[in-house]
Computed example of a mutant assay.
Amino acid sequence: MINGYTADQVRAAEAPLLDAGEPLTARAAHGLAEELRTVLADRAEGLEGEAPDVWKILLLVGSGDNGGDALFAAAELAGTTGPDDVPIDLVVARTGDHAHEAGYAAAVEAGVRFLMNSPAEPDDTADEAKGAAIVVDAVFGIGASRNPTLRGAPKAIVEAVLPVVQNSGGPTVVAVDVPSGIDPDEGSVPEGAVLPAEVTVTFGAVKAGLLIPPGSAYAGDVRLIDIGLGPQLADVTPFTTLDQADA
């Protein structure tokens, strides 16, 4: 069985670990970076002909902790190579007026490239997506559980990128924790501006909304990163469960 937990259950499990100084963000970011490498390897296996000159990863980054996880992961990958020793090019499109402060500082120091405007221009972001191997959706995480609807600049950016990822051979969409725009608890999709993920990298526990339709249809292959919440969740009744045979 796959257990699905609510945002509040996950926050409650994280709280004592954060109070104790456990590096949950670092664990999440490292796990995300490793999964992005795996996705690049999968892309390389499916290539026909020569490898590209660079493996571009475009990150759509919101202002919360979800965006911070993506920025720290980008910092870890910056300056490294992917399959066939091809350099990895990290490009960040901010979807709000600001970004996670520590994550932003780490990414800048590592040499990650940022689109000029904040929030990024939708057309510029779509142009970057056209040459990308991966688009990382780190706009909203479980912090948006009170109202996951994409509005304003985040919605415009997602709507601009959506046709690019829907093209045959387009970039692989990797969602961070949950696809932005779905309710992480109930799986509802209040608006249609959601990037359908091929992979969702979720942290600590599978979020219930990743298992419940229609949100489950946007999640793709859900990959759980262990950040140490197991003991905290051992006696917690999950919000939902899914038989692995049905996953």
Rank of each mutant, 00 (worst) to 15 (best):
G31Q: 04
A234W: 09
G103L: 10
A208T: 03
A156T: 00
M116Y: 06
A106C: 10
E34Q: 15
E76N: 11
L36H: 09
T200V: 09
T81M: 12
T202G: 07
P190V: 03
V236M: 13
R94G: 10
A160K: 00
E14P: 09
G230Q: 14
E35G: 09
A247P: 08
T80F: 10
V10T: 05
G62H: 02
V54L: 13
L150Q: 04
A205T: 08
A175Y: 01
P171V: 00
G79Y: 12
I157E: 00
A197Q: 01
G215A: 11
T95P: 02
M116V: 12
G131L: 07
E159I: 00
G79P: 10
G215C: 10
I227V: 13
D42T: 12
L233A: 06
K207E: 10
L162M: 14
A160M: 06
G31M: 08
A29C: 12
W55Y: 06
P83D: 08
A120G: 06
D97S: 11
A217L: 15
H30L: 15
E186H: 15
G64V: 08
G68N: 11
D53K: 12
P214F: 01
T172I: 12
P171K: 06
V173S: 00
V91Q: 03
G209T: 01
Y218E: 05
V199Q: 06
L59C: 12
E34I: 13
V165N: 05
L32V: 10
Q244S: 13
G64A: 12
G67V: 05
D8P: 09
L90R: 04
V139E: 00
T200A: 08
Y5E: 00
E121L: 00
A73N: 13
V61G: 00
G170A: 07
G169F: 02
